[in-house]
Design a protein around this nucleic acid. Sequence first.
DNA 1: CATTGACTTGGACTTCGTCCATCGTAGGAT
DNA 2: ATCCTACGATGGACGAAGTCCAAGTCAATG
Lengths: 138, 138
Amino acid sequence: MSDLVGRLRARGWRMTAQRRVVAEVLDGEHVHLTADEVLARATARLPEVSRATVYNALGELVALGEVAEVTTDGRAKRYDPNARRPHQHLVCSGCGEIRDVHPDGDPLAALPASERFGFAVSGADVVYRGLCPACVAM
Amino acid sequence: MSDLVGRLRARGWRMTAQRRVVAEVLDGEHVHLTADEVLARATARLPEVSRATVYNALGELVALGEVAEVTTDGRAKRYDPNARRPHQHLVCSGCGEIRDVHPDGDPLAALPASERFGFAVSGADVVYRGLCPACVAM
DNA sequence: CATTGACTTGGACTTCGTCCATCGTAGGAT
DNA sequence: ATCCTACGATGGACGAAGTCCAAGTCAATG
């Protein structure tokens, strides 16, 4: 819990019951939920929340930098509420489990100017892939 | 051109007119095509190729390690025929252009054992994000 | 408390991809 | 060269994920 709702209010985010519920769902569980999972948990608290509203709220939280979108496969995007501290992701190729990890150094440092082709490079998303202990054992 | 068809045949990949066309499309243009773009180019050479066949062939080429799947956004997967040499990707946040890049060192080296949580880590996909020269100028 | 522009709704729609029963054919066997 | 058969191709239905829109509702300001 990190008072996401308070930060959003302070930044002038118009607060509605629906947006509050979405923010609380994300702030409460630091796992990587899909939009549908967010919708399910939001609906449990506030029955009449529409899918479109959840997508809208998630999109705005991403734009505000409070939540990160994680796309580890071609399936549903996942939403990571721990966006304020830079980190990367470790994904199990077996079961899909996702963990936040903190690699040494800045990944951008590994990309020399000669490999930037004139781009203004602003960030790097790293997905480490492997098998989690449970899937290794099988 | 790198004789992808020859390599596949040598590996016992059952060759059909449709599979050959898909392989030739990928081998000919070293850009990052979506499945639909592969289908369009394949159809131009062999009018009666079905979508399912293109997806099947792409899936097998990925499984064989001859082609890499690249997912840079939540949209369509792209297929990278340059999978035999390890590389990463640089994506323009403005126009979506994708370039192959070769960072220094092995990205796995940046992940210490204490951040691996018992996973058997086998690889890392890095997506560098930024603006290409054309999009910076706008 | 009245106002208003921003937010919400729900259902239709789009995109991307998968599935399946049926048909066709590549490549080994004869 | 021809035959057989298992593997591949077909296309249309289906499904998942996400977007769009017109109409209704409401939070925040004065």
